[in-house]
Nucleic acid binder design. Structure first.
Lengths: 348, 348
DNA sequence: ATAGATAATGCAAGCGCTTACATTGACGTC
DNA sequence: GACGTCAATGTAAGCGCTTGCATTATCTAT
């Protein structure tokens, strides 16, 4: 059994107010087109009946949903939370509702959710990162649903994007690490397969190594999923190498927090015995101690601008701009200079 | 301008396959009612046309959306993330889609979002906590949209709930604190206005005080919003009292993390100089050091069961059960015994 | 007063589906 | 071979809105 909802309809309101349904509809959608007296009558009918317009019917008739869909890889950590919040606020300002779902970093789930959102009539979509099956972009084009990519900046890609240059940002951080004298550098990354952000961050480290006259191929990278536990485990793995790396660059703050915890439980001091860096600058980075040196990403700005751009694309039916945001390194206390004692430590 | 979407319709598919729209519809919704040969023909038409059913039209015709809405107070921290994830997974299993929005702890926003979700035809709603304007419950009843409350357990309330006894859980923790010899106890809570969970947790502490022969009215409580910074600030405020409290019970782990950080930056050792406890046992609790002694809430179980119950309510059109979950205290390292030295410290 | 312009309202045709009911055809039974 | 069954498919009536166009009321200028 399902509900036999007897909710009042436009018709009921119209009858009660003694006008046609068209007038009621106009009261709701274009009040200035109906004269004060009538409007009042209608509105009071709406109130006493407790009328709420039926969304599906409205969508069918108007061909617009004022809904934007967003699919993020995960809600379980705070990485996307702040940006999404800003995205939602900006959309709300402009009369749009946000529908969020999370794909758990699984491409096939993401694809299914894209289809669901489109079938639900989303006027536009926010996607995270560029890497995905090209046939999804084909589908979106065919369905004429504009999509915007965030958390990544790649000009001339299939979809416009608003984000930062992951490669360059990570390179800048790695430059700094190298500048502090570290030569044995390792990395804990998210899975790079199907994740351009992870992939480009790794490349960024390699770039820096190259520029610093170090061997980029020698970089050991552990790829794992973005959870604290995995960061810890990866750190332990990396530390079993001989000689030990003196700096561990992590693909994000969550992994870094895990690495940090593991370092501490192995009795290593950070940054004296080993340096650890993060990426994203989420709240977590300031909570752990020592606080993480990390790459600050302007999440709120990104979310806000993404909303603006996307609404523009939807309403004006235009391609959409690709926008690059700046990131900067925030120096806190988990990165320090390399020093001799670390050489001894590694031979323990 | 909006899009002139020329997406294929049921009609197009029907024509292409040489059958009626009814048959196509049946192929999609009740394949066993159509003979193999026809089904194949239809399905291939669906494929070549790249047909996706129009959700709004389907909803209008079928009066069911297979959509559940959830409104959580915030996405910015991880408190609701894990439970919601489980909720979503369970729903997905049963063929439902989840729509999430966040109210930023603002009752008027929550109300608006409830209306939005109902207008969108949500078959059921998940709400956090019981405290809200009774007229919202009236509205939901009138619209015949079943709602389930989570993160709280209150029998015989307006809506069925699945959760834990916030009061009792906090009392148990406070009992433990008192058992360790603490007598000067203070609390950092979220705003209790309109938030039964916060309110009941405070009551829980008072209960424990009473049982322990201490003065419940003497409990100083700082209410603030659930952010790390606020936890830090509240801690500082509490520490300006003389004599200083020796144990700070926090309304959740986020606040506790803030308090912890502040303690450290004030040069106080935890738990030697002051004990701090959290609530929720989110990931954060294990990341900070010392790791937080806190109340473990079975988030995934709660989310999963909430989904089951709600689907039951929706499909069978029944009232729904109220279920109580167990919480337990997880002892980590932020709570220690009260000791004499703290008396000296407070007189510094 | 009256024609013409303009504002306010009504009429009715869909929007793309689902589904109750009607129709058709294949098969088995006596 | 006629008839009853039953499975497969078709017919068509909505679902609750929006909106282009038609109609009516109101106002302005002569």
């Amino acid at each position: 059994m399902s509900k036999l909802r007897s909710a009042p309809t436009l018709d009921d309101v119209a009858r009660k107010a003694g006008v046609s349904t068209a007038t009621v509809s106009r009261c709701l959608n274009a009040p200035e087109r109906v004269v004060e007296a009538t409007r009042k009558r209608v509105m009071s009918a709406v109130d006493t009946l407790g009328y709420t317009p039926n969304f599906a019917a409205r969508v069918m008739a108007a061909k617009r949903t004022f809904t934007i869909g967003a699919i993020i890889p995960t809600m379980e950590n705070a990485i996307f939370a702040r940006g999404l919040q800003a995205f939602q606020e900006e959309l709300h300002q402009r009369g749009y509702t946000l529908l969020v779902s999370s794909s758990a970093y699984r491409p096939e789930v993401e694809e299914e959710q894209i289809r669901t959102l489109v079938a639900r009539g989303a006027d536009g979509l926010l996607l995270i990162g560029h890497d995905r099956d090209p046939k999804i972009y084909d589908y979106l084009e065919r369905q004429k649903v504009p999509a915007m990519v965030a958390w990544s900046y790649i000009p001339n890609a299939r979809a416009p994007s608003i984000g930062f240059d992951n490669r360059q940002a990570m390179q800048a951080l790695a430059d700094r690490v190298i500048g502090l004298g570290h030569t044995r550098i390792a990395m804990i990354s998210g899975f790079s397969q199907g994740n351009d952000r992870a992939r480009l961050r790794i490349e960024g480290v390699r770039d820096a190594l190259r520029r610093g006259g170090l061997q980029p191929d020698a970089l050991s990278v552990v790829e794992t999923s973005y959870e604290v536990e995995n960061g810890a485990e990866a750190f332990a793995r990396l530390m079993s190498q001989d000689p030990r790396p003196t700096a561990i660059l992590c693909g994000n703050d969550v992994l870094a927090a895990g690495a940090l915890r593991q370092a501490q439980s192995m009795g290593m001091r950070v940054p004296e015995d080993v340096s650890i860096t993060g990426f994203d600058d989420i709240e977590l980075a300031r909570i752990v101690s020592p606080a993480l040196t990390t790459v600050h990403v302007p999440h709120r700005e990104m979310g806000g601008k993404a909303a603006l751009e996307l609404v523009e694309m939807v309403e004006k039916n235009i391609p959409g701009n690709t926008i690059r945001l700046q990131t900067d390194i925030v120096e806190r206390h988990s990165l320090g200079p390399a020093n001799k004692s670390q050489d001894f430590a590694s031979r323990g």
